[in-house]
Design a protein around this nucleic acid. Structure first.
Lengths: 345, 345
DNA sequence: ATGAAAGCGCTAACAG
DNA sequence: CTGTTAGCGCTTTCAT
């Protein structure tokens, strides 16, 4: 025989009371006698009763599920952010439904669609690299589902977001290389339609300018956020007559490619060629030389994104009308790859 | 005004037909005229109708959601497995609800509970390190929800599982070190109550035995799957009078700790001390020296786990009664850390 | 080929 | 404090 799950009606019948009373007892409704509450609780435990979230959600119109869209779980950065989100969500009794867009627009759209169908109470997302059309995000707003970006935000959509100060992080990184005494500092950026990457470029440019350093066009190039592209660009630049002696990069995977190239071409001598990344990916500290980088406060970022959801949530009339941005402080992580014992002033 | 989402009733009213017809049209029911189907389809698109999975699930008794429990998203291995699971699930129109247990028993229990409440159609799980009590998994079976383990399985629970041949992988790794000419090969294991870790130990022991190598008790130790514990144990062993000249390790994080220690103590010379890991974590190829390891076919593992779910699913009477195991072939990934140009025979 | 009606399991007025 | 009733949105007999 199939033992259908116990429902509140089963309990009600057993205890000779109504289903509503059972429901109330189970939900700690104020107007319920301590006696019945206990009776119900015991019966529920005895019958291995299990609350059916689906039914509850359907009735209440909310699911207590937050949907999260990340570009890729393989980037440890996003894993850590999700961790932060879960910390907060768990405390509030929410679950997290996770989707990977794999940096593709159509996966991202599909993810949004699935999340909407699942009646998630809100969506936290970091925009895929490939995404150029934002209709699916507009759709979320249209459905009055709170939408919050983290890390990869899109300014003109007026969506609340948690980001770090990418401009500042990149400025600090470049500044650090300058102070270390490097003379020809190259920059390898990412796809410039991603706003955070654009801001990182500006940080580099301004730091250079503020120190009266000319920016050589040959020493600024744009890759695609991969070890390969870091390798290719670094190789090209280092073969130039006027090779750079340091690289500021848009993120750690690119920096890794640069590091590999530098080591391969010249062998590794501390200070020979400075490299600094961005993101503080898990692998960065294990490299040889260990990679200097900019930490993005992943855990905090996730927590703040979740908080943004929960606080907006309490005032539904404000949701999606404000475009509150939380900007976190970047943190320099100075390791071996950027230290320059010879040239340092 | 609040524009409640369009429902099939809204469409029905608009088109002057019944909700059942709308439902049938939307679901490609055979007994529906092509004309009405199109009319409904168009109206649905026009009104931006969105299928409500919750309501559908409640009615159907299934959710088209697979729950996945992983110990940690920070271990890239699991990220890749999830990727494989999603590949298959997506094709079947299923979504994946992801939970991290953080290697803790209570989180894992909570995860199972949440997934059950969400009426997932099946649960794929990799058991947390801390877990010693399996009642929550028994519970899943009791609810007749298909349960499938991947990687970290528990044999006596008789749950279908996809694992790699851990014994063989470890045997191959040890064998490789022996062939490279290392003389005193140490082994650093993990918590032995985890079956896969136990099997890896056996692989090491048998490989040693088969080559007539005595196993020195001082050269076998058990850590806790972390870089730190790898570092601590390696340090201790290397300070011994009879220090090992190679390390087989239970997984890559431990191997990383060993590698760091070796480099710190003796500097890195190729072949000085051999190290091999297990798992082919993303970082392993970027280390210096790059880490030899055993690949676990993550993507395939995820796909097979999902397939196991879908195939069992078609024959519900079989679910959870067979304990089908899929055992994948491990693959040696030989990199710099285990190559021994001097000693090689 | 379509409609009417019932119900998945839960909760929230409203009444008492 | 508790029961009655209605309904969230969908699917599915059973009719016609």
């Amino acid at each position: 025989m199939v033992d259908r799950n116990t429902t509140i009606h089963d309990l009600a019948r057993m205890l000779q009371i109504s289903a509503s009373t059972v429901s109330r007892a189970l939900n700690d409704h104020p107007a319920i006698s301590a006696v019945t509450r206990e009776r119900v609780r015991e019966a529920a435990k005895a019958c291995n009763y299990r609350h059916n979230r689906l039914a509850s959600s359907l009735r209440l119109g909310r699911s207590k599920i937050i949907g999260v869209i990340i570009p890729s779980a393989r980037i440890s950065f996003f894993g850590s952010v999700v961790h932060g989100i879960e910390n907060i969500a768990r405390k509030k009794g929410y679950s997290v439904l996770l989707f990977q867009s794999n940096e593709k627009q159509d996966f991202e759209e599909q993810g949004i669609e699935t999340l909407l169908q699942s009646n998630v109470d809100g969506i936290l997302a970091s925009v895929a690299m490939e995404t150029r059309n934002y209709a699916h995000f507009e759709e979320v707003k249209k459905q009055h589902i709170p939408l919050i970006f983290f890390d990869r935000s899109v300014d003109h959509l007026n969506v609340p977001a948690v980001v770090i100060d990418d401009y500042k992080g990149s400025y600090m990184a470049t500044n650090h290389l300058i102070i270390q005494g490097y003379q020809r500092i190259a920059y390898i950026g990412g796809p410039q339609h991603i706003e955070i990457f654009d801001k990182r470029l500006l940080g580099y440019l301004d730091a250079m300018k503020d120190h009266g350093r000319p920016v050589d066009n040959d020493l600024v190039a744009f890759g695609e956020i991969s070890t390969d592209s870091g390798r290719i660009i670094a190789t090209r630049m280092l073969e130039n007559k006027q090779a750079p002696d340091a690289f500021a990069t848009v993120e750690d995977f690119t920096a890794l490619g640069v590091l590999q190239t530098v080591r391969q071409l010249s062998g590794y001598r501390p200070g020979s060629t400075g490299v600094i990344g961005f993101a503080n990916e898990a692998f960065s500290e294990f490299l040889t030389p260990s990679l200097s980088t900019v930490d993005q406060q992943t855990n905090l970022m996730g927590e703040q994104a979740a908080n943004l959801f929960f606080s907006g949530h309490q005032h539904p009339e404000q949701v999606n009308t404000n475009n509150q941005k939380i900007i976190l402080e970047p943190r320099m992580i100075i390791r071996e790859s950027s230290i320059n014992p010879e040239k340092q002033s």
